[in-house]
Each structure stands twice: as structure tokens, then as C-alpha cells.
Simulated scan of single mutants.
Amino acid sequence: MYLSRYEEAMLRGDYGDAIARAMQVIVRVGDVLKADKLLDIETAHIAGVSYLTIGDPGLEYLEDLAKSNARFRVFTTVNPVGIDMLNDWGIDKEFIDKQWRIINALKSMGASLWLTCTPYEYLRIRPRTYHAWAESNAVAYVNAIYDAWTEKLPGPFVVLSALVGKVPRYGLYTINGRTPTHIVRVKGNQPITDPLIAGLLGKRIAESVSDGKPYLVAKLGGNAVIKQLLASYATYSPHAFIVIDGITPNYKEYFAMMSRPEVIDIDINDIIKDAKTQARNFDAVFLGCPHYGIDEVLSVVNYVRNRGFKRAKKPIYIATTPFVINSLSQGIINMLKDSNIHLVLTTCPVVSPFLKSVRVNIVATESVKQMYYLPKMVGINYISCDGIECLDLAFDD
């Protein structure tokens, strides 16, 4: 693999031992993947930083890097952690303390502590720029919505890429590696507006194309639906790459690149039939995977207003970002809390013990991604609900 003089100097140790060790791994991985050179990245997004998932070994690794004066060379954001930075939710103090040590190690290396799985909603990302991202839903989103280029990378590898500002050129970092192999046509007269249906569609697409790369032709009704579709698709896809007709920048070029693609037709009515609401035995509603943005939170505010500010019979937890919290007045936050709706910051149930801490064992959720991870990661069961029905269940149960 070709290395520039600057890259050789980093590998040699001219910029410190931490950079040299990071370059050794990146070059070794690049050689295995038969990359021809390294690429300069504009941003990095680190995942896998909850103490629940990385434990003491991950904590010690990050602290060792921080103590060696390692610093990120590109703008670097971080995925949700295992705690809410504004509310302990009854989580064990030792867990909270160790999570803060992880956060502080990342901060000392120069990370921007947004602690969200949706950094794409707050960044200006140019098409055909290179990035090193680990969060699967974010990888799918920036590839599909911005035509920005990243593979679905392991969290520890992204840490190293952020330290040197480089990734090997392979796979989705090449135009040939982004050639769609399947055309997926979704039949239906109306735009898809239901988050659950969008998520189930994303799962169906991933299962239908396997390791292929789909070119999707569908009517999608808004960003909230797109987020759910891509998050679910990325959960079940090995690469999280998809082109959306009429939406992805350069989609016409991608369409022209295809050579005898396999065509798959999906009837959205079949997916709607499969999305019947299950038994109503649940402890709470969970929304916000991916993290809710301001528009999604405000839609809940409007729902509560239309309900006459009544109190939900079951608690509703909404995972969101510091940007959203800072955009809401304290009056709105208090109004939601009075309605038994709780905004949860900087975390996610699949990487945190907070649901167990508030004695929730079964959630009602619209997120197909959560349906995959909750039982596996934290032993939380679920029932599915489509869109506004999740709120209806909590208020009317």
C-alpha cells in the first residue's frame, strides 16, 4: 500500500508513539483489505463507548490513550453512552463513575461530546467526502442522504482513524465498491409515513439483498420515516449502504452504473399486514432510536396539547440530544414531564441499564432497530406500535 512521506513519518514514530501504534493497525488492516492507499477523512464518529458494552478493558484502553497525549486530528463526535448526563435514573454509582471516566478520556483526546447516534442532523456534510463512522444508522444515513463515503467501521478502529485522520481506501471508499446490485421497487400509492412500517421495510430490504447493494425506489414521507428505514436496514445489512432514488445525491449516476441488476418488488401492503399491534402488556413506551430530533419531539408536544395536557397512564421515555434540550423552553420540558413524558439525554436503552433501573421490562416501541437489540443487549422485551399509536397506548391503556 502506498504511503506518503507524512504517513511514513507517522508510522515511523515522528509524531509520537500513540500515532505510530494507530498507523500500524490502520496500515495492517489496509494491507489485509488490499487497499492501495490511505484517504484523508473529514470527520469521525465513535461508537461503542458505553461502560455497559466495553467494561473495564475499554475504559483502561481509552484512559491509556488519553494519558499518552493522543489527540484526534479530525472533528470527532461520540455515540450515546450508558448514562443520562442530567439524570441518574437510579443507575448504580460505580457504573456512573466509570462512564464519566470514559467520557473524560474521550474529551481529553479532543472529542466533541454530542453523545448522539444522529450527528448527521447537526453537521454540514458534503457529497463525496470521506469519513470514518462506526454507528450503523449514521453510516447508512450519510451514505444515502449526503452521498458521503464511509464504511460501517468498528468503534476501536474509528478511534485510531480519528487519531491519524486516515482510513484505507477500499470497499465503500471507492466508486466501484458503491455500485448498486439490486433495484428494490416498493409498490404502493401513498407515501410511507409510519415509522414502524418504514423500519419493517428496511429490514425486508436488507434480508432480500443480503450482501448486495440496493437502489431503492419508494415514496418516503419525511425525514423521521427515512431515519427509521435506514436504521433498521443498517441493523440487518453487513455494510449499511443504500441508494434512494430521487434523494441520494448523484443517484442518477448510481443508476447508470448498474449492469443487469436483480429487480425485487415489495408490496407495502404485505408489510402493513405483518405490522399488527401485539398484546398490550408493557411497562412503558420508548421513542428515540435513532435519537429524536427537534421536529419529532415537537410532534409529541403537539400530541399532548391536542390531548388537553392529560397525563399518560404509562411512562413515555424519549431519547434525544443536547441540541434538542437546549432548543426547548423549560415550560415545555415541564409540561412533558407533567404528562408522564420524560426526555432522556445522551444515552440509549440498548447501551444503558436505565430502563431496568426504572423497573421497565417490556417497552412499546416503533423502532425496529430497538426490537433487534433490546432483548440481546439488556434483556428488555418489546411490543411494536406504529407511529402515533405508541402514544395512544400510553394514554389510553
Rank of each mutant, 00 (worst) to 15 (best):
G48F: 10
Y120M: 12
N334Q: 14
C348G: 02
P180W: 04
I388V: 14
A138K: 04
N281R: 11
G212F: 01
T129V: 12
T181A: 08
K227I: 08
L229M: 15
S352C: 09
I19H: 09
V184I: 13
I41N: 02
Y2K: 09
A18I: 06
A35K: 00
A9Q: 08
N87G: 02
F282D: 08
T321L: 11
Y382R: 06
T77M: 12
N361R: 14
V243D: 00
L298S: 05
G82D: 12
S384C: 04
R5T: 14
D31I: 12
R311P: 01
N137L: 04
N269T: 01
L343Y: 03
G202N: 04
D31M: 01
I226A: 02
T179Q: 07
K369G: 09
V344L: 04
C348Y: 01
I266M: 12
G55F: 13
L230K: 09
L33K: 14
L220G: 03
S237A: 13
K337Y: 06
K337D: 06
L106Q: 12
V209K: 11
K227T: 02
Q190A: 11
S161V: 05
R101D: 03
L113R: 10
E151K: 00
V29G: 01
L39R: 02
G110R: 09
S161W: 00
V263H: 06
C390M: 03
A105L: 05
